[in-house]
């Protein structure tokens, strides 16, 4: 009835495939680059060129940076410049490069109860939503998008108290789930463009405010500092970073489309202060 101990040993070994000589690294990424399909599009190109496998752990930006601080993962691909700079400044990360950009979009129901359609000042739009107490759905998960939304509330001078649940709902979910909830509640929400393009019920929500520079969404890669975590796969992670900012990598990003729209704009720019290391 009980399998022998050697059988158990076999099981354990089988559960840990050890491909001898396989080169790989672990990328802690934000969910939007995975869920939109960008990584699925560009990673095979990178692997074909370098032979390096990329093991993607897709979580929110906050969680990705937390994992990276613990040395779990070799690089991060996230979208919160302020947090990324802190990550580098505190010595956890090195060699940060911006690699792509798109924008956040303020979307909402077609009847637009707060009357924000066509505004080019997103902070003004946020203020109007708060004052009209129109329903707003927030990610509420410490993701890059959530952090940006909170920054915008702060700039609008809106204090979100505990009593505001009558119109402000934190759902603690990923972008697609949040969009689904917003569509079902006829609520406003802030989304990154790629997730919105990939959202299948897009017709129930409308893009209402765009083009404000404060809605810029920058994706950047940073490597985990090998001096802090000696076991990281620094060389593999670095080749990926170098490839992403190279003409081939940038072209791969530019070629990725959702429907007939380009979801990410290539944007290679490496921070000067860490570029010289190694």
């Amino acid at each position: 009835m009980k399998p022998s101990l050697s059988g158990l040993f076999l099981l354990l070994c089988a559960a840990t495939p050890v491909q001898a000589g396989e080169r790989y690294f672990v990328l802690q990424s934000t969910t939007s680059v995975q869920n939109s399909g960008l990584l699925e599009h560009i990673l095979p190109l990178f692997t074909a060129q370098t032979g390096i496998q990329v093991r993607v752990v897709a979580v929110g930006t906050g969680q990705a940076l937390y994992h990276a601080r613990n040395g779990d993962g070799d690089a991060v691909l996230v979208h919160d410049p302020e947090a990324e700079r802190a990550f580098v400044r505190e010595g956890f990360g090195v060699l940060r490069c911006e690699v792509a950009r798109n924008d956040f979009v303020l979307v909402g129901p077609r009847n637009d109860p707060a009357g924000i359609r066509g505004l080019d000042d997103v902070v003004d739009a946020f203020r109007r939503i708060a004052h009209s107490r129109a329903l707003f759905v927030s990610r509420g998960d410490d993701s890059g998008t959530h952090r940006r939304e909170q920054a915008l509330w702060r700039q609008a001078g809106i204090e979100l108290g505990v009593a505001d649940t009558s119109w402000y709902r934190q759902v603690g979910s990923g972008m697609t789930a949040t969009l689904t909830i917003a569509a079902n509640l006829s609520a406003y929400t802030l989304t990154d463009r790629a997730s919105f393009l990939a959202f299948s019920h897009r017709r129930e929500l409308e893009e209402l405010v765009r083009g404000d520079p404060r809605l810029e969404n920058l994706y950047a890669i940073a490597l985990v500092n090998p001096e802090r975590h000696p076991r990281v796969r620094f060389a593999e992670a670095r080749s990926f970073r170098d490839w992403l900012v190279s003409p081939e990598g940038q072209a791969a990003i530019a070629a990725f489309r959702l429907g007939d729209e380009r979801a990410f704009t290539p944007a290679a720019r490496c921070d000067a202060d860490t570029g010289s290391r190694r």
């Binding site: 559960a15 613990n70 993962g73």
Partner: peptide, 24 residues
């Protein structure tokens, strides 16, 4: 289990995080 197997955790040196063994 994550905190145990994390590279900053007590069993980080085993390198088991993000492997099927960790899931087992």
């Amino acid at each position: 289990i994550y905190l145990l197997l994390s590279n900053s955790g007590p069993l980080g040196a085993l390198g088991l995080l993000y492997t099927p063994s960790a899931m087992v």
